[in-house]
C-alpha cells in the first residue's frame, strides 16, 4: 500500500490521503485528473474491479463529492478516489468506457443527485423514480417530509398529538 501511494503521489496531484482500514485508502484529486487517475489505476496498477461510484451533497460548501472505489483483487486492496465538483454546474466526465457497468451508477446519480455525465449511455433514462417531478431527492435541499405529506394520503384513522399541547390539556387546561 505504501509503495503504491508513493507511486501515485509521484505521478498525480493527490491530497488528503487517509488510510481507513489496513487494505483501504481514501484520497482526493481534482476533477480534471480524476479519470486519468482511474485509468492509470486500472491499466497500470491492476485495479481491475470497479466497486462503486457514489455522491455526497455538501450543500454548505456548494459542492458535490463523487467517490469511486476500485479494487485490486491480486493484492486485495481498495482505493477510494474522491473528487469535488461544483453544485452550480454538476457535471462530470463519464467513466463508462472503462467499465460498462459504470453507466448504471452514473444514471442513478443523474436521477438522485442531478449530476450529469454527458455521453454515458442511457444517463437520462429513469432509474427507479418513474415520472419524478421534483428536485432530485438525494439533494439535501429536498424536503423529504414535506414531499411525503403532500404526495401520500394519510391512512384513515390516523391521529397524532403534540406532546407539549397534550400535556397542557391534561395538566393545566386553564393555565
Amino acid at each position: 500500500m505504501k509503495e503504491l501511494l508513493q507511486r501515485l503521489e509521484y505521478r498525480f496531484d493527490v491530497s488528503d490521503i487517509v488510510q481507513k482500514r489496513e487494505n483501504q485508502t481514501f484520497l482526493t484529486i481534482d476533477k480534471k485528473h480524476t479519470i486519468s487517475l482511474i485509468t492509470h489505476l486500472r491499466d497500470i496498477e491492476n485495479f481491475s474491479h470497479f466497486v462503486l461510484l457514489t455522491a455526497v451533497d455538501w450543500i454548505e460548501d456548494n459542492l458535490f463529492q463523487l467517490t469511486y472505489i476500485l479494487h485490486n483483487p491480486e493484492v486485495n486492496i481498495d482505493i477510494a478516489i474522491r473528487t469535488m465538483i461544483s453544485r452550480d454546474n454538476p457535471e462530470m466526465d463519464s467513466a463508462h468506457h472503462l467499465w460498462e457497468q459504470v453507466a448504471t451508477y452514473q444514471r442513478e446519480l443523474k436521477e438522485m443527485f442531478g449530476i450529469n455525465f454527458p455521453g454515458s449511455p442511457g444517463v437520462n433514462d429513469s432509474f427507479i423514480l418513474e415520472g419524478w417531478d421534483d428536485i432530485p431527492p438525494y439533494r439535501r435541499d429536498f424536503d423529504t417530509k414535506k414531499y411525503t405529506e403532500e404526495t401520500y394520503f394519510p391512512r384513515p384513522g390516523r391521529q397524532t398529538n403534540d406532546p407539549a399541547e397534550y400535556m397542557k390539556n391534561k395538566l393545566y387546561p386553564n393555565g
Binding site: 417530509k145 411525503t148 405529506e149 390516523r158 391521529q159 400535556m167
Partner: peptide, 30 residues
C-alpha cells in the same frame, strides 16, 4: 421523514412531569 409515527395515549401510562404519557404508534405502510 415518512410521517409514519403518531404519538398516542396508552392506557395505564400517566401524563406527569417529564412524561407526556404519549407513546409512538408506527404505520408500517409508511
Amino acid at each position: 421523514q415518512n410521517a409514519a409515527i403518531d404519538m398516542v395515549p396508552v392506557e395505564g401510562i400517566e401524563t406527569k412531569a417529564g412524561d407526556s404519557g404519549l407513546r409512538p404508534m408506527i404505520d408500517y405502510g409508511r
